[in-house]
Design a protein around this nucleic acid. Structure first.
Length: 276
DNA sequence: CCCCAGGTCGTCA
DNA sequence: TGACGACATGGG
C-alpha cells in the first residue's frame, strides 16, 4: 500500500531554542535518523519529514507551510517557552545542572498509539533494538511513502493492526512483548481504551485508563502520557532516573518538580545517560 | 556461557 | 503492598 509523496517545498522558521540533535537523541522518539548532511528524516503522524537546524533556523523539507502550522509546530512543541519552564528548576542544584546540560530538548507530541506501542516494546530492551523492532513493525504493516527513491513507512494504526495475530508479529522479533502489542491493539480498536480522550482527562484518570492494557505498567504509562499525550506532570521512572533519585534525593519523591516534572525527568535522563 | 537492556506480570508471603 | 524470578531477543 502506498501514499503519495507530499508537496515538495521547503519551509523555514525560527528555531525557538530547540536543539534538534538532543531532542531526537534523548530516547523519546525512535523513528528519525540523522543523514549524511546533518538533517533528520523520518515519519511521524502519518507524514514524512526531513528537517535541518542551522543558524538558529529550522528548515522543513518535503512539506508545506500548512503542514508546519497544522502538524509540525505542535509536534515539536514550538509554542512552549522552555526557558520559562526551566526557571522553575533553578531552586534545585542537580536539576539546574541537568537542565543546562540538556538545554534545547523538547518534549515531542507524538501520536498516542505510536507512543503506546513503542513504549510497550521498550520494556526490558535497549534503544537500538527498540528501533529495529519498531522499524520492522512499520515496514510490515504500515503504508509506504517513497521520497527520492527511498522508502519510508508510516506507523500502522490500530485499525490497520486490528486483525493481526501473534503469529503475524513473529517477523518483528518483539519476543514476549508481542502478546502485549496484541492486547493494546484490541483495547484501542474496540474502544475499550480511548486514546483520544486521554488529553481531556486528568493525569490520574488517564493513567488508570492506560494501565488497563497488559504490558503497560507505571513507567510505560508515564512515557505514553508524557510523549504521546503531552502531560508534562508524568514522570517516567526508569532505571536511570531511579539511580539519580536514590543518589541525589534519598527516595523517589519527585513532587517537588511540580507540574513540569516530566520535562525535569527528561533533562535528568539525558544528563545521566551522558555522564555515566 | 555470562550479563544486560527506558519493565511488567504472576506468584507467594 | 512488597519482593522475586521469568520473560524473547540480540549484542557485548
Amino acid at each position: 500500500m502506498k501514499v503519495s509523496n507530499p508537496v515538495l517545498s521547503t519551509f523555514i522558521t525560527d528555531d525557538r531554542g530547540i536543539d534538534l540533535d538532543k531532542t531526537f537523541d534523548c530516547g523519546q522518539a525512535f523513528r528519525f535518523e540523522k543523514t549524511e548532511d546533518g538533517s533528520f528524516e523520518g515519519v511521524a503522524l502519518g507524514k514524512y519529514l526531513k528537517i535541518r537546524q542551522q543558524d538558529k533556523k529550522l528548515y522543513f523539507y518535503h512539506t508545506s507551510e500548512e503542514d508546519f502550522n497544522t502538524i509540525w509546530k505542535a509536534y515539536f512543541d514550538l509554542d512552549t517557552d522552555y526557558d520559562e519552564i526551566k526557571r522553575n528548576f533553578e531552586c534545585d542544584i542537580h536539576l539546574e545542572l541537568a537542565a543546562d546540560f540538556a538545554r534545547g530538548i523538547r518534549i515531542l507530541k507524538q501520536d498516542p498509539f505510536e507512543a503506546l506501542i513503542s513504549f510497550i516494546i521498550s520494556a526490558n530492551n535497549n534503544i537500538p533494538r527498540i528501533k529495529k523492532i519498531i522499524n520492522l513493525l512499520c515496514q510490515s504493516f504500515g503504508k509506504e511513502i517513497i521520497v527520492e527513491n527511498k522508502s519510508f513507512y508510516t506507523f500502522p494504526t490500530a485499525n490497520e493492526l486490528a486483525d493481526i495475530t501473534i503469529k503475524d508479529l513473529e517477523v518483528i522479533r518483539a519476543g514476549f512483548r508481542a502478546k502485549y502489542i496484541i492486547d493494546a491493539v484490541q483495547n484501542v480498536y474496540s474502544g475499550e481504551v480511548n486514546l483520544d480522550a486521554l488529553n481531556d482527562m486528568d493525569y490520574i484518570a488517564a493513567k488508570e485508563e492506560l494501565l488497563k492494557i497488559k504490558g503497560v505498567g507505571e513507567k510505560v504509562a508515564d512515557c505514553i502520557l508524557l510523549f504521546g499525550v503531552g502531560k508534562y506532570e508524568a514522570f517516567p521512572k526508569d532505571v536511570w532516573i531511579k539511580r539519580i533519585m536514590n543518589t541525589c534525593y534519598g527516595d523517589c519523591e519527585h513532587a517537588r518538580f511540580g507540574k513540569y516534572a516530566g520535562i525535569a525527568q527528561q533533562y535528568l535522563f539525558y544528563y545521566a545517560r551522558y555522564n555515566n
